[in-house]
């Protein structure tokens, strides 16, 4: 409840103009012969949170994995057009694209051989950034942003995997924002976490949208309602409804959306 009122206040204070950060047109995604998405089109607005909801297997994950071309890592393909700042993402080198469009995964996946500190700066270090004092600054800054600094500042040299699940996930988010992406994709970032850690991640998403464009996939409709500005409902690989979150949850235009959020299927 608390966060709902928070939503309203933030909506009032950060009203500024909607700018399109990414656009998706007629996206059809495939795994070999299996079509996972068909003709999905939508806009992703700058410094807003877009939630993707829908039942399992509806193509939510495939959708966001297309946005940073992670879909092709597992052998998938897509047709249609995805643009980042009006440039087709196929024109980017996939490595460069993923620095601009970062990703947080469902299960916390810190690098197993690295310390907490090295995990945070891994993206920078492995891309040749070696200024030690600057790295320290960035690590502290990122860990503060994800509200993890106070918990780990004395154990930066401990293994990243020694943290609790919720801490690990915040560490992974810190690692993602350390490379300063413009868009952050989150694939059910809280589904493997307990309620308290989930609440922390949600608060974090709230803070992050001041600086980042966020697309979050979630199974949890309350979560979508709490954290997002826009919501897209996918069903069987198709976009059923896309609207402002409040509008979509309070007065959906599609019958199927209403049925889904009312828990009648899915």
């Amino acid at each position: 409840m608390n966060s709902l009122t928070k939503t309203e206040t933030i909506e009032k204070t950060t009203k500024p103009e909607l700018k399109e950060k990414m656009s998706v047109k007629y996206l059809c995604a495939y795994f070999g012969d299996v079509q996972a998405l068909s003709t999905v089109s939508m806009s992703i607005y700058k410094k807003r949170v877009l939630a993707i909801i829908g039942p399992s297997g509806c193509g939510k994950s495939t959708f966001i994995r297309c946005l940073n071309r992670m879909h092709e890592v597992v052998g998938g393909e897509y047709v249609g057009e995805i643009k980042l700042d009006d440039v087709d993402i196929k024109k980017f080198n996939s490595v460069i694209l993923r620095r601009k469009v970062g990703m947080v995964f469902q299960k916390p996946n810190p690098f197993p051989t690295m310390s907490v500190f090295d995990n945070v700066v891994a993206g920078l270090k492995l891309n040749g950034f070696r200024n030690k004092s600057k790295l320290k600054e960035i690590a502290e800054d990122c860990l503060k942003k994800v509200a993890l600094w106070d918990e780990v500042k004395d154990s930066l040299n401990k293994a990243g995997t020694s943290l609790s699940g919720g801490q690990q996930q915040r560490l992974c988010i810190a690692r993602t924002i350390a490379v300063e992406p413009e868009v952050i994709l989150m694939d059910e970032p809280a589904s493997a976490l307990d309620p308290i850690s989930t609440a922390k991640i949600e608060e974090l998403i709230f803070d992050l949208r001041k600086n980042y464009t966020i697309v979050i996939v979630t199974h949890n409709m309350q979560q979508a309602a709490r954290v997002s500005d826009f919501t897209a409902f996918l069903y069987m690989g198709k976009l059923v409804e896309y609207n402002k979150t409040k509008k979509l949850f309070i007065s959906p235009t599609e019958k199927r959306t209403e049925d889904y959020i009312a828990g009648r299927f899915g």
Partner: peptide, 10 residues
């Protein structure tokens, strides 16, 4: 782990 690394643009 591999995907995490790719996701960071490594």
């Amino acid at each position: 782990v591999r995907e995490a690394s790719f996701g960071l643009g490594i």
